[in-house]
Amino acid sequence: MRRWIRPALIGLAIILAILAPVGQGNYITYVLTSWLIFSIAAMGLNLTLGYAGQISLAQASFMAIGGYTTALLTLAGWHWMLALPVALSFCFVVGLMLGYPALRVKGHFLAFVTLAFNTLVFLILRNEEWLTGGNYGLVGMPRPDFGLFSTMKQHHFYYFTLTITIVAAVIMWWIVRSPWGRAFKALRENPIRAESLGVDTRRLTLLAFAIGSTYGGLAGALVTPLVQFIEPASFGVAHSLRILLMVVVGGAGFFFGPFLGAGVVIILPEFLRFTEGYYLIIYAALVIVMLVFTPKGLIGLGALLRDRFWGKRVARGDLKQGAQLK
């Protein structure tokens, strides 16, 4: 791809994101805002899964931890901007702890440990009524107010979320491009070689979990003022699976995959609404079909089509540097 195409596309995407809610009703704006929020959560999981190769089925529980922490603090009178760092640090620490099992087990075992963790968080939120309100959840969290810029209106909250999303994406871009990011990829591709090249795989695995979880927490901290009502059922295992689906549908390991994936997972059901009860059936069938034909996700589909119609320069494998090491 030519050098200028990528920045141009990103610029276009941002302009589109700014223009998207103009002239739309509250409901559409709400859907767009939740698209941004889930993109953040999926971005975090993409770091853990797509870049570092550690499967996690607990992203929704970090949204819950971030969301409930923010909710409790803002209900106690804190400003959202002050509650946010507390929520994020909390998620970072819990994510770090969840990373420890990942040091011992891989693949499907890790999937189950994280799944179990998610269910445990759900049970605690449901049963500890004195703190979390149990099944009834928490209601009436205020939206952040910055004096001149209040986010009470749906459109304003959208732009507020968009700003935070862009900041989060830039930080993620920096992480992925930094030596850390390359070390994450090394961890995914070949842990033994990474270790032998002096990469501290232990610390990196933990970090991958902690940073990914913090992004989940950020998403949770944004859901709280958006919906102004949180309950345990919004953070169950099914939602972790949805976030995982976003990452895989978009294309795991691609920077823009999560945005595309979250868009498909959040917005496609709105288009399928006319099918009434059948939309989940159609939706699940589409996911299976997609995995059969483009296992790398929708971004992979683009590459697949490009290879098909444009042809590709193939470097001879045996002449590549380091080929004999394989």
Partner: peptide
């Protein structure tokens, strides 16, 4: 494996 996990979830 991960693709297959997602596919069985969808199923």
């Amino acid at each position: 494996g991960i693709s297959l996990i997602i596919a069985t979830m969808a199923l």
